[in-house]
Design a protein around this nucleic acid. Structure first.
Length: 161
DNA sequence: GCCAACGTTGGC
DNA sequence: GCCAACGTTGGC
C-alpha cells in the first residue's frame, strides 16, 4: 500500500463534489509521470489526500481512497472533450485513470501555509521546488503528520481570545 | 495579473 | 540530439 496526494481545482471538482457523488473517475491527467503513478503504483484501497489547488486557500481538505485499478481514460477518445488526444487509439490508449472514492472531509483544511510551516514535511513531494505534478506519493510518516495536523486544535485562525 | 518552474513542441 | 519558443501549472 502506498499513500498519495491528488490535486483538484475546487472550481472544477471539489471535496464536496466527491462527497456528493461518492465515487469519481479521475479524468484528465495528461502528464506522463502522474499517469505512471496511477498505472504502475496505485492499488485499490490506497489512501489519498485530497488537495485543493489554484484557489483562495490551497491545501489538503480531506481523504479519499483509490477505488479501481487503472483503466483507459474515456475522454481521450472524445473529440468534443478538452482532454481529447488524437494520438490515442483504443488498441493503444495513451492515458489511464483510476476511480477515487470519498472517505472524509476535514473539519478544517490543512492549508498549504500550515504545511510549509511544518518542519517534518520539509521533504515531502508537494513542497519541493517547482513541483507541478497533480498526483504525488506521500510516505506513511508524512501522511500521519498531515492527519495529525487535520485533527489538531491549533488550527490557523481559531484563536478565540 | 504576474511570475517561476517546468514540460512539450518543432525546427534544425 | 539540441535548444528556443511556447504553453501550463499554481502560488501569490
Amino acid at each position: 500500500m502506498r499513500h498519495w496526494l491528488m490535486k483538484s481545482e475546487p472550481d472544477v471538482f471539489s471535496i464536496d463534489d466527491l462527497a456528493r457523488v461518492g465515487r469519481e473517475p479521475w479524468t484528465g491527467v495528461r502528464n506522463h509521470q502522474a499517469r505512471n503513478f496511477m498505472r504502475d503504483d496505485m492499488q485499490i484501497g490506497d489512501p489519498v489526500l485530497f488537495y485543493h489547488s489554484s484557489c483562495a486557500e490551497p491545501g489538503v481538505v480531506g481523504i479519499a481512497r483509490v477505488a479501481s485499478a487503472a483503466y483507459p481514460d474515456p475522454s481521450q477518445f472524445e473529440r468534443d472533450s478538452e482532454y481529447f488526444d488524437a494520438r490515442s487509439t483504443h488498441a493503444q490508449p495513451r492515458w489511464v485513470l483510476v476511480d477515487v472514492e470519498f472517505e472524509q472531509k476535514f473539519a478544517q483544511p490543512v492549508t498549504l501555509a500550515r504545511l510549509r510551516n511544518e518542519p517534518r514535511l520539509a521533504g515531502c513531494a508537494l513542497l519541493q521546488r517547482g513541483n507541478r505534478l497533480s498526483i504525488l506519493p506521500f510516505t506513511r510518516a508524512q501522511w500521519d503528520i498531515v492527519l495529525g495536523m487535520a485533527s489538531s486544535r491549533q488550527q490557523r485562525g481559531t484563536r478565540h481570545a
